[in-house]
Write a protein that binds this DNA or RNA. Structure first.
Lengths: 343, 343
DNA sequence: CACGCTCCTGAATGCGCTTTCAGTAAGCGC
DNA sequence: GCGCTTACTGAAAGCGCATTCAGGAGCGTG
């Protein structure tokens, strides 16, 4: 912004005919004669004065705006978690600024760097990190000095190589529980709509699911696991691919509700009914899946709480020696998208 | 953040054994002997130096972070528009920070004030303003000096009393077009799921719909217009209320897709089918409504574009004398949630 | 009535950086 | 080899504010 003339504290002081120091004190609620205070306040209002946040920060005042970085604000999962963050932040009189990287590591680093440069009191990272050594190093290089400088960082479902305070959904256990639920319904032949393998979320959910099946003597055919981006269209395409390969599964597990939504559409476009022809299950329990037809069976994560707890973590100092990890369990919610086999 | 020791430019300069000025120039890509530049860059990397954004801004460098303020990031409408903003911001090498007010006027003002204090190069306001004189005055008091100071502001579907560059969806015409489409299907008895009357969006959509019906000789029974918040649950309750009153409409027009989603649920819970028993239409065309069962008939707004155009407006200077207004038309998309009457 | 104390005000300093201004070294022609 | 131009470097100022330090007015006590 081309700084044309800005009203400064000096202008206010002059208008109120007091010293700069007095003006500053009056504006910041320190002890000043009521009469002087009024004069200063009036002058400030009159001139539409806004303190320059930069000058103020530079002179030692501290910030009340925390930064939240997620992959994609457009994704209901992130929106819900961010909502939780904002709830707690609001209760603590903090403002929050949300950044969306659209899954671009460069941009993610840029945001962290910016937040660091602005000396934000806390940074929250939401969503799996990119499993890429270069990214990890860059991230570490940003975060380490930020933490050393007194910054607070908390993370939701983030790569574990970054040693940060974390809120971790129990992806593995949740997927395992889902496997059990589906087995109980009589299913034995499964397909999986998977996300990018580089994400720990994927490793965990897929692994938990597969292992639990294996424990029950059921093997998951590698050809029945299709990978796609964690988006609605990713789910659509993965499902379509599965269908093209000649799906012989009775049940499809989407690693993410958003992908399940795409799967619904693909199935419908192929004239297949859910759960009549194929059962579908998801993961996350984003709000909209209750309103799908049929309502989606899924592993319900306390999305809001994920954000709330992360914010709380960032707000309280870690007095212990080790990083804090809060695991949040997911719960299988059986809705109408999964049917008993043979029923 | 408790500023413990931070690495400053001076530290870097000392480590590289050059002057402060040289270090600054080297880091900012100005002409410096390559050898010196390397030494400075190496020292900076070594020390994990991040320039203090506040000091930098104070000294005259300009910001690359624009602010976007919306009502609720959790609402797909805002998410989609924000997505558009971010697309063009990214293309222009800008970062964007998104704030969510959760419909709290106080918080909205606080965010604008913060952005102003930080001398952000642009502020985008997304969503209807609060029609409240106090709010309006406060907003004006914030924005006026911001604009005078060279800040750029653009607005999407915002109250018209604020004289700002705007991108305006043609709510009135869109609702009228929807009325025509529904009349054409043979419907004559309508109900409306409305939002808070204080929002111009509501006035326009409701007015456009009602007037167009009137032009066709059909009156909209005031008792058939139920008001609720612009949320899924708002839609659910409004629909429930309508049902309790003894709905005799053949077609329900929700002023917002999100409300229509709630209406679907309420209808389903009452054992009514869409469009068998009642036709339902919405407004906005948020992405998810294509995946509803049945897919929702709605007025499709170019949501992404709304954001893109607003960002572009904020990026280009207004050379003219008057504020710029870009009207964006909506288009009726008939899907399966509306049926021909008697078919 | 004089002295000491408290409380408030104003001048001055520094936060970390960019940028102007002046100075020095290098490069060139004669 | 000398003087001049060119190119880069370093010292210093200043961005707007919070805050320390010292001085001054007002009050109470002996």
């Amino acid at each position: 912004m081309q700084p044309r003339t800005h009203v400064t504290l000096e202008d206010v002081a002059r208008a109120a005919d007091v010293s700069l120091a007095t003006a500053s004190r009056a504006l910041n609620g320190m002890r000043v004669t009521p009469q002087l205070r009024d004069r200063v306040l009036a002058a400030a209002a009159q001139l539409a004065y806004t303190p320059n946040a930069h000058a103020r920060a530079l002179a030692g005042a501290s910030h009340r705006t925390v930064g939240v970085i997620c992959h994609d604000v457009t994704d209901p999962y992130f929106a819900a978690v961010a909502g939780g963050v904002m709830r707690v932040a609001g209760a603590n009189d903090l403002l929050v600024m949300l950044a969306s990287t659209f899954r671009d590591p460069e941009r993610e680093i840029a945001y962290v760097s910016m937040l660091r440069a602005e000396r934000a009191p806390a940074i929250l990272l939401i969503g799996s990190g990119f499993e890429d050594a270069r990214w990890e190093r860059a991230m570490e290089a940003e975060l380490k000095p930020y933490l050393d400088g007194g910054g607070r960082v908390a993370v939701v479902s983030r790569h574990r190589s970054l040693k940060l305070d974390s809120v971790l959904p129990e992806n593995r256990a949740g997927a395992a529980a889902m496997a059990r639920a589906l087995l109980e319904l009589g299913h034995r032949r499964f397909a999986v709509l998977s996300g990018p393998r580089a994400l720990t979320t994927v490793t965990d959910r897929l692994g938990g699911f597969r292992d639990e099946l294996a424990a029950a003597g059921v093997t998951l055919d590698p050809a029945a696991v299709v990978e796609g981006p964690f988006t609605r269209d990713g789910g659509y395409q993965a499902m379509t691919e599965l269908l093209a390969r000649g799906l012989d599964a009775t049940c499809v597990f989407a690693l993410t509700d958003v992908m399940a939504i795409g799967a619904y559409a693909a199935l419908r476009d192929h004239g297949l009914s859910v759960p009549g022809d194929v059962s579908v299950a998801g993961f996350d329990d984003i709000p909209i899946v209750r309103d799908l037809t049929p309502p989606l069976t899924t592993v319900a994560l306390p999305l809001q709480q994920l954000g709330e707890k992360a914010m709380e973590m960032a707000l309280t100092e870690n007095t212990g020696r080790r990083r804090r990890i809060l695991r949040m369990a997911g719960e299988v919610v059986v809705r109408a998208s999964t049917a008993k086999l043979g029923a």
